[in-house]
């Protein structure tokens, strides 16, 4: 019964999932952390850490129960948060569909669109489950800073007030603010696009471009995001908000994996070498899907297209930057 469900379930025990589970438990939530991999779940439950994946985490909070039993998680949790790569969302959502009912809130913290279909994660969840109360969690919050207890902010987007309320109940606290938005499409698209733009920022940093160039790069990336978001049914303001510009600035300042990937690209590393060093990056899929999305809606995206071409190994960094600087002059 929903009335007796008191817990929050985080689905996906990667870096982001582990961090969200830790934050929720620190805020006093009874928290279930689900991993499809029963060995990983067992290890987390017994050893309370996973240094190989998340060295920043000293010890998993006692309020977190790690398990590979999804039915158990659904029976105990009013809210399920899918925290995985964009390409894995459908497979997880399909499993979720077998265990949820209409009373569940299903949130996701996926930064990307489904490769191939270009679908937003909430649409994928709707296609795989009976859940209606769905929403997206995005924004500039960073793993390292959340775990260090430094102030962070999310934006939670949903048409359903209960989803916002549950997100705040799970994550909001002294160091975490959760802002609300009704622009679900805009927030999801902006979150996907910001990871792509962050790769571009990494390239610019590696090439030693000046502050003015970087500022131009960031603001033009945000403008590009806004055009695509609007064309795809969201509000341009969301691209300029926490999920878009906010996340891009956080990624740039934190030297995130996306920025690091951009630096490596500019240093002449191949996409395969980057993946080998940094592990799977949503930004790689996101760049491809974002470029395809822009083409689908007939929106010009110079920076996004260049990043996608770089990540696909189709151009090198100097050529890419030259192509951006030799664009014909245009109105802002």
């Amino acid at each position: 019964m929903s009335g007796t469900r008191q817990s929050v379930g985080i689905l996906g025990a990667g870096r982001w999932g582990l961090t969200l589970a830790q934050v929720a438990a620190q805020h006093g939530q009874s928290t279930y952390l689900w991993s499809e991999d029963s060995r990983r779940a067992g290890r987390l439950q017994s050893q309370r850490k996973l240094k190989s994946l998340l060295p920043e985490l000293d010890e998993l909070h006692a309020g977190v129960t790690a398990t590979s039993d999804l039915a158990l998680v659904a029976s105990q949790c009013h809210t399920l948060v899918i925290a995985c790569g964009a390409g894995e969302t459908r497979a997880i959502a399909r499993q979720v569909g077998a265990v949820v009912d209409g009373s569940h809130v299903v949130l996701h913290a996926v930064r990307g669109l489904e490769p191939g279909t270009l679908r937003r994660a909430t649409r994928v969840i709707r296609e795989e489950t009976c859940a209606r109360k769905v929403g997206a969690l995005a924004g500039p919050a960073l793993v390292e800073e959340l775990l260090a207890g430094r102030p962070n902010a999310f934006v939670c987007a949903s048409r359903y007030p209960e989803v916002i309320r549950r997100a705040r109940q799970a994550f909001a606290g002294d160091a975490v603010r959760v802002y609300a938005s009704k622009d679900l499409a805009g927030v999801e698209l902006a979150a996907a696009a910001s990871a792509v733009a962050a790769v571009g920022v990494g390239i610019a940093l590696q090439l030693g471009l000046g502050s003015a160039t970087l500022a131009t790069f960031v603001t033009r990336s945000a403008a590009e995001m806004a055009r695509v978001v609007e064309a795809a049914g969201g509000q341009a303001a969301s691209a300029m908000g926490l999920a878009g510009l906010g996340e891009l600035l956080a990624l740039r300042e934190s030297g995130s994996r996306e920025v690091e990937a951009g630096r490596m690209l500019a240093a002449g590393k191949t996409p395969a070498q980057i993946t080998k060093k940094l592990g799977h990056l949503d930004a790689v899929d996101a760049a491809k899907t974002f470029k395809a999305l822009a083409e689908h809606y007939g929106v010009e995206t110079h920076i996004g297209a260049v990043v996608a071409d770089l990540l696909a190994g189709e151009v090198d960094a100097p050529t890419a930057i030259r192509s951006l600087m030799t664009l014909s002059h245009m109105a802002e």
């Binding site: 929903s2 399909r94 569909g97 077998a98 009912d101 209409g102 009373s103 709707r126 296609e127 795989e128 489950t129 009976c130």
Partner: peptide
Amino acid sequence: PHERPIDIER
């Protein structure tokens, strides 16, 4: 969407 029954009261 997968033809599973839904208890819509919930």
